[in-house]
Design a protein around this nucleic acid. Structure first.
Ligand SMILES: [Mn+2]
Ligand SMILES: [Mn+2]
Ligand SMILES: [Zn+2]
Ligand SMILES: [Zn+2]
Lengths: 152, 152
DNA sequence: GTAGAATTGATAATCATTCTCATTACGGTG
DNA sequence: CACCGTAATGAGAATGATTATCAATTCTAC
Protein backbone atom coordinates (compact mmCIF):
# COMPACT_ATOMS: atom_id res chain seq x y z
CA UNK A 1 0.00 0.00 0.00
CA UNK A 2 2.96 2.30 0.25
CA UNK A 3 6.29 2.54 -1.46
CA UNK A 4 9.39 3.58 0.36
CA UNK A 5 12.65 4.39 -1.33
CA UNK A 6 11.94 3.86 -4.97
CA UNK A 7 15.54 2.98 -5.75
CA UNK A 8 16.37 1.15 -2.60
CA UNK A 9 18.32 -1.61 -4.27
CA UNK A 10 18.28 -0.38 -7.81
CA UNK A 11 19.38 3.06 -8.71
CA UNK A 12 22.49 4.11 -6.96
CA UNK A 13 25.50 3.09 -4.97
CA UNK A 14 24.49 1.58 -1.61
CA UNK A 15 27.08 -1.01 -0.79
CA UNK A 16 24.24 -3.08 0.56
CA UNK A 17 26.61 -4.49 3.11
CA UNK A 18 24.26 -5.68 5.81
CA UNK A 19 26.06 -5.87 9.10
CA UNK A 20 26.40 -9.64 8.75
CA UNK A 21 24.52 -10.24 11.95
CA UNK A 22 22.07 -13.13 11.70
CA UNK A 23 23.32 -16.57 12.69
CA UNK A 24 24.00 -18.67 9.64
CA UNK A 25 24.47 -15.91 7.13
CA UNK A 26 21.94 -13.44 5.72
CA UNK A 27 21.04 -12.83 2.11
CA UNK A 28 23.02 -10.67 -0.25
CA UNK A 29 20.55 -9.41 -2.85
CA UNK A 30 22.67 -9.18 -5.95
CA UNK A 31 22.22 -6.68 -8.69
CA UNK A 32 21.47 -8.79 -11.71
CA UNK A 33 20.69 -7.74 -15.27
CA UNK A 34 17.28 -9.31 -15.14
CA UNK A 35 16.28 -7.49 -12.00
CA UNK A 36 17.46 -4.24 -13.48
CA UNK A 37 15.56 -4.83 -16.70
CA UNK A 38 12.41 -5.59 -14.75
CA UNK A 39 12.62 -2.53 -12.57
CA UNK A 40 13.55 -0.37 -15.51
CA UNK A 41 10.54 -1.49 -17.50
CA UNK A 42 8.30 -0.77 -14.54
CA UNK A 43 9.86 2.61 -13.87
CA UNK A 44 8.73 3.74 -17.27
CA UNK A 45 5.23 2.69 -18.24
CA UNK A 46 2.57 4.66 -16.47
CA UNK A 47 0.29 1.72 -16.06
CA UNK A 48 0.59 -1.17 -13.67
CA UNK A 49 1.81 -4.40 -15.26
CA UNK A 50 1.15 -7.97 -14.32
CA UNK A 51 4.02 -10.45 -14.20
CA UNK A 52 2.90 -11.95 -17.48
CA UNK A 53 2.55 -8.60 -19.23
CA UNK A 54 5.95 -7.55 -18.01
CA UNK A 55 7.42 -10.83 -19.18
CA UNK A 56 5.90 -10.24 -22.60
CA UNK A 57 7.32 -6.73 -22.85
CA UNK A 58 10.77 -7.88 -21.91
CA UNK A 59 10.62 -10.56 -24.53
CA UNK A 60 9.65 -7.98 -27.14
CA UNK A 61 12.39 -5.60 -26.02
CA UNK A 62 15.00 -8.24 -26.84
CA UNK A 63 15.72 -8.79 -23.15
CA UNK A 64 14.24 -12.21 -22.63
CA UNK A 65 13.81 -12.80 -18.92
CA UNK A 66 12.36 -16.03 -17.63
CA UNK A 67 8.81 -15.88 -16.37
CA UNK A 68 9.73 -17.39 -13.02
CA UNK A 69 12.36 -14.73 -12.61
CA UNK A 70 9.85 -12.01 -13.32
CA UNK A 71 7.57 -13.37 -10.63
CA UNK A 72 10.38 -13.72 -8.15
CA UNK A 73 11.69 -10.23 -8.61
CA UNK A 74 8.33 -8.55 -8.62
CA UNK A 75 7.54 -10.27 -5.36
CA UNK A 76 10.84 -9.30 -3.89
CA UNK A 77 10.79 -5.71 -5.06
CA UNK A 78 7.31 -5.38 -3.68
CA UNK A 79 8.17 -6.57 -0.21
CA UNK A 80 11.27 -4.39 -0.26
CA UNK A 81 8.92 -1.51 -0.92
CA UNK A 82 10.50 -0.54 -4.22
CA UNK A 83 7.27 -1.16 -6.10
CA UNK A 84 3.59 -1.41 -5.23
CA UNK A 85 1.36 -4.39 -5.81
CA UNK A 86 -2.12 -3.68 -7.10
CA UNK A 87 -4.89 -6.25 -7.13
CA UNK A 88 -6.98 -6.20 -10.25
CA UNK A 89 -10.66 -6.98 -9.99
CA UNK A 90 -10.03 -10.02 -12.17
CA UNK A 91 -7.66 -11.38 -9.56
CA UNK A 92 -4.16 -11.03 -11.00
CA UNK A 93 -1.65 -8.89 -9.23
CA UNK A 94 -0.12 -5.99 -11.12
CA UNK A 95 2.93 -3.99 -10.09
CA UNK A 96 3.98 -0.41 -10.42
CA UNK A 97 6.95 1.76 -9.55
CA UNK A 98 5.48 4.19 -7.09
CA UNK A 99 6.42 7.41 -5.42
CA UNK A 100 7.42 7.28 -1.77
CA UNK A 101 5.07 7.51 1.15
CA UNK A 102 1.62 6.16 1.83
CA UNK A 103 -0.80 6.60 -1.03
CA UNK A 104 -3.61 5.06 -3.03
CA UNK A 105 -4.42 4.75 -6.70
CA UNK A 106 -7.07 6.00 -9.04
CA UNK A 107 -7.06 3.75 -12.08
CA UNK A 108 -8.83 4.13 -15.41
CA UNK A 109 -10.85 1.01 -16.08
CA UNK A 110 -10.55 1.61 -19.81
CA UNK A 111 -6.87 2.34 -20.48
CA UNK A 112 -5.25 1.51 -17.17
CA UNK A 113 -3.78 4.94 -16.55
CA UNK A 114 -2.92 5.48 -12.90
CA UNK A 115 -3.00 8.57 -10.71
CA UNK A 116 -1.34 8.48 -7.32
CA UNK A 117 -3.36 9.87 -4.47
CA UNK A 118 -1.21 11.11 -1.65
CA UNK A 119 -3.87 12.69 0.49
CA UNK A 120 -5.50 9.78 2.21
CA UNK A 121 -8.64 10.49 4.15
CA UNK A 122 -9.05 6.90 5.10
CA UNK A 123 -6.33 6.84 7.72
CA UNK A 124 -8.27 9.03 10.14
CA UNK A 125 -11.52 7.29 9.45
CA UNK A 126 -10.03 3.86 9.96
CA UNK A 127 -8.36 4.93 13.18
CA UNK A 128 -11.62 6.20 14.57
CA UNK A 129 -13.58 3.16 13.44
CA UNK A 130 -10.98 0.83 14.88
CA UNK A 131 -11.05 2.49 18.27
CA UNK A 132 -14.84 2.39 18.26
CA UNK A 133 -14.80 -1.37 17.81
CA UNK A 134 -11.84 -2.19 19.99
CA UNK A 135 -9.58 -3.21 17.15
CA UNK A 136 -5.82 -2.89 17.17
CA UNK A 137 -3.14 -2.59 14.52
CA UNK A 138 -5.56 -1.46 11.87
CA UNK A 139 -4.54 -1.46 8.27
CA UNK A 140 -6.51 -0.27 5.31
CA UNK A 141 -6.52 -1.11 1.68
CA UNK A 142 -8.32 0.95 -0.94
CA UNK A 143 -8.42 1.55 -4.64
CA UNK A 144 -10.41 3.97 -6.73
CA UNK A 145 -11.30 3.33 -10.34
CA UNK A 146 -13.13 5.25 -13.01
CA UNK A 147 -12.96 6.43 -16.60
CA UNK A 148 -10.27 8.98 -17.31
CA UNK A 149 -10.66 12.16 -19.31
CA UNK A 150 -8.91 10.76 -22.37
CA UNK A 151 -11.03 7.66 -22.53
CA UNK A 152 -14.30 9.51 -22.55
CA UNK B 1 -19.40 -3.74 -2.07
CA UNK B 2 -23.05 -3.52 -1.18
CA UNK B 3 -25.80 -6.00 -0.54
CA UNK B 4 -29.38 -5.39 -1.52
CA UNK B 5 -32.30 -7.53 -0.46
CA UNK B 6 -30.75 -10.22 1.65
CA UNK B 7 -33.48 -12.72 0.91
CA UNK B 8 -34.21 -11.81 -2.65
CA UNK B 9 -34.52 -15.36 -3.90
CA UNK B 10 -34.21 -17.22 -0.68
CA UNK B 11 -36.44 -16.45 2.22
CA UNK B 12 -40.00 -15.92 1.24
CA UNK B 13 -42.75 -16.38 -1.28
CA UNK B 14 -42.00 -14.36 -4.41
CA UNK B 15 -43.60 -16.22 -7.25
CA UNK B 16 -40.58 -15.22 -9.27
CA UNK B 17 -42.77 -15.34 -12.32
CA UNK B 18 -40.92 -13.08 -14.70
CA UNK B 19 -43.31 -11.69 -17.28
CA UNK B 20 -42.04 -14.16 -19.86
CA UNK B 21 -40.88 -11.37 -22.14
CA UNK B 22 -37.49 -12.09 -23.65
CA UNK B 23 -37.42 -13.90 -26.99
CA UNK B 24 -36.52 -17.50 -26.49
CA UNK B 25 -37.38 -17.81 -22.84
CA UNK B 26 -35.74 -16.29 -19.81
CA UNK B 27 -34.21 -18.04 -16.81
CA UNK B 28 -36.22 -19.44 -13.95
CA UNK B 29 -33.89 -19.55 -10.98
CA UNK B 30 -35.17 -22.59 -9.16
CA UNK B 31 -35.13 -23.01 -5.43
CA UNK B 32 -32.94 -26.00 -4.90
CA UNK B 33 -31.92 -27.66 -1.67
CA UNK B 34 -28.27 -27.00 -2.36
CA UNK B 35 -28.76 -23.31 -2.87
CA UNK B 36 -30.79 -23.11 0.30
CA UNK B 37 -28.16 -24.98 2.27
CA UNK B 38 -25.47 -22.66 0.98
CA UNK B 39 -27.30 -19.49 1.79
CA UNK B 40 -28.36 -20.85 5.16
CA UNK B 41 -24.80 -21.67 6.13
CA UNK B 42 -23.70 -18.20 5.12
CA UNK B 43 -26.55 -16.50 6.92
CA UNK B 44 -25.25 -17.91 10.19
CA UNK B 45 -21.50 -17.77 10.64
CA UNK B 46 -20.25 -14.28 11.39
CA UNK B 47 -17.12 -14.71 9.35
CA UNK B 48 -16.77 -14.66 5.60
CA UNK B 49 -16.31 -18.07 4.00
CA UNK B 50 -14.53 -19.08 0.85
CA UNK B 51 -16.14 -21.51 -1.54
CA UNK B 52 -13.90 -24.28 -0.32
CA UNK B 53 -14.51 -23.58 3.34
CA UNK B 54 -18.23 -23.50 2.76
CA UNK B 55 -18.02 -26.75 0.84
CA UNK B 56 -16.20 -28.31 3.74
CA UNK B 57 -18.77 -27.16 6.27
CA UNK B 58 -21.60 -28.48 4.20
CA UNK B 59 -19.91 -31.84 3.94
CA UNK B 60 -19.49 -31.92 7.70
CA UNK B 61 -23.11 -30.94 8.28
CA UNK B 62 -24.27 -34.04 6.40
CA UNK B 63 -25.46 -31.93 3.45
CA UNK B 64 -22.88 -32.80 0.85
CA UNK B 65 -23.03 -30.21 -1.90
CA UNK B 66 -20.74 -30.45 -4.90
CA UNK B 67 -17.88 -27.98 -4.99
CA UNK B 68 -18.81 -26.75 -8.45
CA UNK B 69 -22.30 -26.07 -7.20
CA UNK B 70 -20.98 -24.09 -4.28
CA UNK B 71 -18.96 -21.92 -6.65
CA UNK B 72 -21.88 -21.48 -9.01
CA UNK B 73 -24.30 -20.43 -6.32
CA UNK B 74 -21.94 -18.13 -4.50
CA UNK B 75 -21.25 -16.37 -7.77
CA UNK B 76 -24.88 -16.12 -8.58
CA UNK B 77 -25.98 -14.99 -5.14
CA UNK B 78 -23.26 -12.36 -5.20
CA UNK B 79 -24.34 -10.84 -8.47
CA UNK B 80 -27.93 -10.95 -7.33
CA UNK B 81 -26.79 -8.90 -4.38
CA UNK B 82 -27.89 -11.42 -1.77
CA UNK B 83 -24.35 -11.80 -0.48
CA UNK B 84 -21.12 -9.81 -0.59
CA UNK B 85 -17.83 -10.96 -2.06
CA UNK B 86 -14.72 -10.10 -0.07
CA UNK B 87 -11.22 -10.41 -1.48
CA UNK B 88 -8.73 -11.83 0.94
CA UNK B 89 -5.15 -10.60 0.85
CA UNK B 90 -4.13 -14.12 -0.13
CA UNK B 91 -6.27 -13.90 -3.23
CA UNK B 92 -9.25 -16.17 -2.67
CA UNK B 93 -12.70 -14.73 -2.64
CA UNK B 94 -14.81 -15.13 0.48
CA UNK B 95 -18.53 -14.51 0.78
CA UNK B 96 -20.76 -13.23 3.47
CA UNK B 97 -24.46 -12.55 4.01
CA UNK B 98 -24.53 -8.81 4.45
CA UNK B 99 -26.93 -6.16 5.56
CA UNK B 100 -28.41 -3.92 2.91
CA UNK B 101 -26.90 -0.70 1.62
CA UNK B 102 -23.39 0.40 0.82
CA UNK B 103 -20.85 -0.55 3.43
CA UNK B 104 -17.33 -1.78 4.11
CA UNK B 105 -15.80 -4.35 6.42
CA UNK B 106 -13.45 -4.37 9.34
CA UNK B 107 -12.03 -7.86 9.64
CA UNK B 108 -9.94 -9.43 12.39
CA UNK B 109 -6.78 -10.86 10.88
CA UNK B 110 -6.60 -13.39 13.67
CA UNK B 111 -10.07 -14.91 13.99
CA UNK B 112 -11.83 -13.55 10.93
CA UNK B 113 -14.60 -11.77 12.79
CA UNK B 114 -16.29 -9.11 10.69
CA UNK B 115 -17.81 -5.76 11.57
CA UNK B 116 -19.90 -3.96 9.00
CA UNK B 117 -19.15 -0.29 8.57
CA UNK B 118 -22.09 1.64 7.26
CA UNK B 119 -20.71 5.12 7.55
CA UNK B 120 -18.41 5.44 4.57
CA UNK B 121 -16.19 8.49 4.43
CA UNK B 122 -14.63 7.36 1.23
CA UNK B 123 -17.56 8.22 -0.99
CA UNK B 124 -17.07 11.97 -0.60
CA UNK B 125 -13.33 11.75 -0.83
CA UNK B 126 -13.46 9.66 -3.98
CA UNK B 127 -15.97 11.99 -5.59
CA UNK B 128 -13.76 14.98 -4.95
CA UNK B 129 -10.61 13.23 -6.09
CA UNK B 130 -12.32 12.01 -9.23
CA UNK B 131 -13.51 15.47 -10.19
CA UNK B 132 -10.06 16.86 -9.54
CA UNK B 133 -8.54 14.46 -12.04
CA UNK B 134 -11.29 14.47 -14.63
CA UNK B 135 -12.43 10.92 -13.94
CA UNK B 136 -15.95 9.66 -14.43
CA UNK B 137 -18.00 6.82 -12.99
CA UNK B 138 -15.77 6.43 -9.99
CA UNK B 139 -16.04 3.37 -7.87
CA UNK B 140 -14.20 2.59 -4.71
CA UNK B 141 -13.20 -0.56 -2.95
CA UNK B 142 -11.89 -0.65 0.58
CA UNK B 143 -11.34 -3.05 3.44
CA UNK B 144 -10.08 -2.49 6.96
CA UNK B 145 -8.36 -5.15 8.99
CA UNK B 146 -6.91 -5.37 12.46
CA UNK B 147 -6.87 -7.44 15.63
CA UNK B 148 -10.15 -7.59 17.47
CA UNK B 149 -10.64 -7.17 21.22
CA UNK B 150 -11.10 -10.89 21.82
CA UNK B 151 -7.97 -11.87 20.01
CA UNK B 152 -5.73 -9.59 22.00
C1' DG C 1 40.90 -15.34 -11.32
C1' DT C 2 38.49 -18.09 -8.08
C1' DA C 3 35.31 -19.79 -4.92
C1' DG C 4 30.79 -19.96 -3.22
C1' DA C 5 26.46 -18.40 -2.58
C1' DA C 6 22.56 -16.09 -4.87
C1' DT C 7 20.04 -16.08 -9.08
C1' DT C 8 18.28 -17.75 -13.20
C1' DG C 9 15.26 -20.49 -16.28
C1' DA C 10 12.79 -24.55 -18.20
C1' DT C 11 9.59 -27.22 -16.41
C1' DA C 12 6.71 -29.60 -13.15
C1' DA C 13 3.59 -28.85 -9.46
C1' DT C 14 -0.09 -26.15 -6.82
C1' DC C 15 -4.38 -24.24 -6.16
C1' DA C 16 -8.40 -21.75 -6.79
C1' DT C 17 -11.84 -21.36 -10.01
C1' DT C 18 -14.30 -22.60 -14.36
C1' DC C 19 -15.94 -25.76 -17.85
C1' DT C 20 -18.15 -30.23 -19.63
C1' DC C 21 -21.72 -33.04 -20.02
C1' DA C 22 -24.43 -36.89 -18.50
C1' DT C 23 -27.80 -37.28 -14.77
C1' DT C 24 -31.16 -35.35 -11.48
C1' DA C 25 -34.58 -32.43 -9.46
C1' DC C 26 -37.83 -28.20 -9.95
C1' DG C 27 -42.06 -26.30 -11.09
C1' DG C 28 -45.73 -26.25 -13.56
C1' DT C 29 -49.69 -28.85 -16.40
C1' DG C 30 -53.31 -31.81 -17.30
C1' DC D 1 -50.60 -37.81 -9.21
C1' DA D 2 -47.95 -38.81 -13.50
C1' DC D 3 -45.39 -36.28 -16.95
C1' DC D 4 -42.40 -32.69 -19.48
C1' DG D 5 -39.04 -29.39 -20.49
C1' DT D 6 -35.51 -27.08 -18.53
C1' DA D 7 -32.51 -25.35 -14.99
C1' DA D 8 -29.41 -27.26 -11.65
C1' DT D 9 -26.21 -30.59 -9.94
C1' DG D 10 -21.88 -33.21 -9.54
C1' DA D 11 -17.51 -35.71 -10.77
C1' DG D 12 -13.89 -34.86 -13.03
C1' DA D 13 -11.23 -32.53 -16.70
C1' DA D 14 -9.43 -28.08 -18.00
C1' DT D 15 -7.64 -23.47 -17.24
C1' DG D 16 -4.71 -19.86 -15.62
C1' DA D 17 -2.04 -17.59 -12.48
C1' DT D 18 1.45 -18.31 -9.27
C1' DT D 19 5.05 -21.28 -6.88
C1' DA D 20 8.39 -24.92 -6.28
C1' DT D 21 12.42 -27.72 -8.30
C1' DC D 22 16.96 -28.09 -9.33
C1' DA D 23 20.83 -28.09 -12.49
C1' DA D 24 23.33 -24.44 -14.80
C1' DT D 25 24.81 -19.63 -14.62
C1' DT D 26 26.37 -15.23 -12.79
C1' DC D 27 27.52 -11.90 -9.11
C1' DT D 28 30.75 -10.28 -5.58
C1' DA D 29 34.11 -10.30 -2.44
C1' DC D 30 38.71 -11.69 -1.77
MN1 LIG E 1 1.52 4.17 -6.31
MN1 LIG F 1 -21.03 -6.69 4.65
ZN1 LIG G 1 -8.31 5.93 -19.49
ZN1 LIG H 1 -10.33 -11.66 16.30
Amino acid sequence: MSGRSQKLKQGGAEHASAEHAEPGGASETRRTQQRQAIFHELAHGDRALSAQELHERLRAADAGVGLATVYRNLGRLAEEGAIDAIRRPSGETAYRACGAGHHHHLTCRRCGAVVELHDCTIADWSRRIAAEHGFDQVEHQAELSGICANCR
